[in-house]
């Protein structure tokens, strides 16, 4: 026994690398627990519960929070997505065009709207356009404003995603189609775009998640009671009940939309990785 202990490899600073990693892990845990304990002691839990977890207030929000808040959030998201997607495809095709003018315009659009905050774009649509074009009415009124206001920004991001998707379709696919006698336009429609869309479904789903959250910005357009989306709806209830519970309810409803979507993205990405 004595011989084996003396045979030990010379320890560096007394610990192996694995031991050292373990040691530091424990220090991290200890700090984390200490922070939690301090917070737990300092917080006024009864006041917290009353403000954030008031069941009566939460129950009173239903069903209006679903029929107004959630419904409007979904409507605004879908409107903005549809507008952004169609415009995004057009911009993407412009960026890939052989015509220089189109390429420049497409790039300019993307750079401009990726560089601006969505809130500012919404203000521009809501306040700038009516002033610049007196008498101009958005088709669809308020909904038209929402669609364009959120969609303009979304289109810039989606255009980049879709462009990448189109470029990811192998060149041989185009050659095969052209060889069979497909015109360039038909090649794009029948062969390239269907494959590109398959590639961009996961990133576009991410774009939907962003839009769900950005839809909370439309309150700056000056919304009426029936046009309240989740955030504005919850905020108005905060004032009404003098409780923060509505924000918790609103937040949970957002997660109800976004968490399944991000799960879906993950699954699609795994499936895509397998298919390649």
């Amino acid at each position: 026994m004595a011989t084996t202990t003396t045979q030990k490899p010379t320890p560096k600073k007394g610990m192996t690398r694995r031991q050292r990693a373990k040691y530091f892990r424990w220090i991290q845990y200890a700090i984390g627990i200490a922070v939690l304990v301090v917070i737990a002691f300092l917080a006024d839990w009864s006041a917290f519960a009353k403000a954030f977890l008031n069941i009566d207030v939460a129950l009173e929000m239903f069903p209006a929070v679903l029929t107004t808040g959630l419904k409007n959030t979904l409507i605004y998201t879908v409107l903005a997505f549809v507008f952004g997607f169609i415009l995004g495809v057009i911009i993407a095709l412009m960026r890939l065009s052989s015509v220089r003018v189109y390429r420049v315009l497409g790039s300019a659009y993307v750079e401009l709207f990726r560089g601006l905050p969505s809130l500012l774009v919404l203000f521009l649509v809501a306040l700038g356009i009516p002033r610049a074009f007196p008498g101009f009415q958005f088709p669809g009124g308020f909904y038209g404003q929402v669609m364009v206001g959120l969609g303009l920004t979304a289109a810039a991001y989606m255009a980049e995603t879709i462009r990448a998707g189109i470029q990811a379709v192998p060149k041989g696919q185009v050659e095969a189609a052209r060889t069979l006698g497909f015109s360039p336009a038909r090649t794009l429609r029948v062969i390239v775009l269907p494959q590109a869309f398959r590639i961009v479904i996961p990133p576009l789903t991410n774009e939907i998640i962003l839009l769900v959250k950005d839809s909370s910005l439309v309150y700056v357009l000056g919304v009426t009671l029936s046009q309240y989306e989740l955030t504005k709806f919850s905020q108005s209830k905060v004032v009404e009940y003098a409780s923060s519970t509505p924000l918790v309810v609103g937040g949970l409803l957002y997660l109800l939309i976004t968490l399944p979507l991000s799960q879906l993205v993950r699954r699609l990405e795994i499936r895509h990785a397998k298919a390649r």
């Binding site: 192998p170 041989g172 052209r178 060889t179 006698g181 494959q195 398959r198």
Partner: peptide, 20 residues
């Protein structure tokens, strides 16, 4: 070209079947 190409078959090194 599109019309003439319909009469010319072509096979590629990488097959280029339409995967979708």
């Amino acid at each position: 070209l599109d019309n003439v190409r319909t009469h010319i078959g072509m096979c590629f090194q990488n097959f280029n079947l339409f995967p979708h």
